[in-house]
Write a protein that binds this DNA or RNA. Structure first.
Lengths: 111, 111
DNA sequence: GCTGTATATTCGTATATTAGAATATACTGA
DNA sequence: TCAGTATATTCTAATATACGAATATACAGC
């Protein structure tokens, strides 16, 4: 099915770089906002919090993954989700965390 | 469909922590080895390279995500994939990188 | 208990990351 | 061109990370 060949170090580093982009709460908060639709930088600064400069930087990190799109419109720059599979990944992690929490709380009977 | 409620900062930080675990080439190399089946630490040191101490540390980081299982058997410790969805996530990233590379090379005609 | 093997932990160092403040650039409209 | 608004970049400090070397712990067999 999937490619069973092993990836070389450079390939692994590129993949790692993408996960890295999603490994920060501020950037995930931005993603969460973009889920509702495209958004300008100023609006994201308001909604996510933090300095304008920092939000702008984090947006660039996200855009470099290829999952987020950058689009200039006149004076403003709008960011949006370019590939919704980014949320599939988040959902996998979330559901894992949820089931872990349930196990910890003893809500699950494993056979 | 998915939970549309916004996650608080603490939740986002927990998710970020999991992505963080996958954001390192050495740890991805370990995952790649585990794909073929459970593996002891010593074998992973041989196959992945680097010091034994470092591999052991990285294994712990992976195990903390809940996607990788740790199992003691006598003198040895075996690690294995506990939730194969970790590879789904990797595949999403890989396919994105592949399509990006193709676009860069001009192999894709967008309508 | 002692020895050897397997794994984990600690320590120190080089490097990377995050964030705010200040500054620079880009664009719009008068 | 000038002023104002929106975004990006640079600089700096605090913190986090990855790694090897050395050391500690766990366990099996004698």
């Amino acid at each position: 099915m999937a490619d069973e060949q092993k990836m070389d170090r450079e390939g692994l580093e590129r993949v790692a770089r993408v996960f890295q982009a999603f490994s920060d709460a501020t950037r995930l908060a931005i993603l969460q906002e973009l889920k509702s639709g495209p958004c300008g930088v100023g609006t994201l600064v308001e909604r996510v919090g933090g300095s304008q400069g920092n939000i702008s930087k984090q947006l660039q990190v996200l855009a470099e993954t290829g999952f987020i799109r950058r689009e200039k419109k006149g004076n403003q720059v709008f960011y949006s989700i370019d590939d919704p599979r980014v949320f599939e990944m988040c959902n996998v992690v979330c559901s894992k965390l949820t089931s872990e929490a349930q196990e910890k709380a003893g809500f699950v009977f494993e056979i």
